[in-house]
Structure formats: structure tokens, C-alpha cells
């Protein structure tokens, strides 16, 4: 559930970010950033971001996490890992973007015009329920909660895919759905990231 965060708690949230990013191998290298901008220069979507990847790391280091979480930046990241393979300091920029997305969802930051958070949440719920991702249900639920008219726009493509037998209406389910439930329950109970 999303939790509202007051200005006072932002400092704590910065700590949460650093703590969680450090859980990934090499995650703490983010503090080695020298602002060279290789990440921004390598990013195919930087032009559409409120802040470029380089700026994001700058704001993080300046303790301005709120600016970052209120921006569209991480939701414009397509996870192509171009920044990650090129960063001369070995910073896992893509992992940092993932962490920002998770924090934004968890603490209820919903920048205007952003729908990547809805897609992620719907995707996760589907997988938690079935064990697999049903493409059709994912798109239907996503469009219903973000832009029902978008669904009409997509109907043409949907129909073509349906005609070519590239859509399955019934979701596939795994046998071990209870295993997924138990794993996620454990994560929740332990307050894990």
C-alpha cells in the first residue's frame, strides 16, 4: 500500500534508497559517480526525462530524493542497460532506476502523465495470481485504469493479433501458485524490499 511521505521523512527515504541499492552487488558504487554524463549520453530516452540519469544521481547525492521521485525520469527508463555497461565507475544505473520505481510505487509518488507505475502494479498482481503474465489481461487492466479510450485505439491491433492467433484469452496458470504466494508473503512479513 502506498504511504504518504512528509518532507520530514524524505531524509529517511534517502537512507532507504541507499540501503536497498546497496543490497545489490556493486550497488554502493553509486557514491563513486563523478558526474561525467556517460549515462545520459548513452540513454535513448534521456531527452524525454525530467532529469537525465546523470542529474538523478546528482540529486540523490545532494539529498534531494523527493525531486527525483516526483519526476518522470525512472518511468522513461526502458531498462536497456546501455548506461550500465558503459559507466566508467561501474555504477549499476539501471538497478538504481528500478529501485526508484519501487520506492515511488511504495510511497505513493505519482508524477503527472506517468502510467508506468500502473503497468508495473497490474503486471505484478497478475503474476502473483497466475504465476505467469497474461498479455491480454495485462493490457486490458492497464488501459481500464489509465485510459479506457486508449483501449479503443489499441482495438485494431488487438483484432489483428487475435486473427493471427497471437492472443490467448484465458490466462495460463502454474501449478505452484501457492509457492509464489508463500514467497511473497515471506517478503512482506519480513518487511523486505
Amino acid at each position: 500500500m502506498a504511504t504518504q511521505v512528509g518532507a520530514r521523512d524524505m531524509g529517511r527515504l534517502s537512507d532507504v534508497f541507499l540501503e536497498e541499492i546497496s543490497r545489490m552487488p556493486g550497488g554502493d558504487k553509486i557514491m563513486a559517480c563523478q558526474q561525467c554524463g556517460t549515462c545520459s549520453g548513452s540513454c535513448p530516452t534521456a531527452y524525454a526525462m525530467d532529469y537525465t540519469p546523470r542529474q538523478i544521481i546528482g540529486w540523490l547525492r545532494a539529498g534531494e530524493l523527493e525531486k527525483v521521485l516526483n519526476s518522470n525520469t525512472m518511468w522513461m527508463c526502458a531498462s536497456c542497460y546501455s548506461c550500465t555497461v558503459r559507466c566508467p565507475a561501474g555504477i549499476k544505473v539501471t538497478d538504481a532506476m528500478y529501485e526508484l520505481k519501487r520506492l515511488a510505487i511504495k510511497y505513493g509518488f505519482t508524477p503527472r502523465g506517468v502510467t508506468g507505475n500502473t503497468l508495473a502494479t497490474v503486471f505484478q498482481k497478475n503474476v502473483d495470481k497466475y504465476g505467469r503474465s497474461p498479455e491480454m489481461e495485462l493490457l486490458a487492466r492497464y488501459y481500464l485504469s489509465t485510459n479506457p479510450f486508449g483501449m479503443l485505439k489499441m482495438a485494431g491491433l488487438g483484432l489483428k493479433l487475435f486473427r493471427n492467433k497471437r492472443i490467448s484469452l484465458a490466462p495460463e496458470k502454474i501449478r505452484g501458485r501457492d509457492e509464489i504466494q508463500k514467497m511473497l508473503q515471506y517478503v512482506r512479513e519480513k518487511g523486505e524490499w
Binding site: 503474476v127 502454474i174 514467497m183
Partner: peptide
Amino acid sequence: DDWNCCGTTPYFSAQGLGAFSIAAR
């Protein structure tokens, strides 16, 4: 046998350790 979603991009955007764990299943 009985494979599950790998935990691809949108799942990792919502879950951290949970995503790594379903991949690891």
C-alpha cells in the same frame, strides 16, 4: 517443469527481493 514468469522489467519495477526470488524459483 511448471516454470513461472521470469520477473521481467515491470515486475522488478514493483518488487525487489520478491522479483529476484521468483526468478530464482
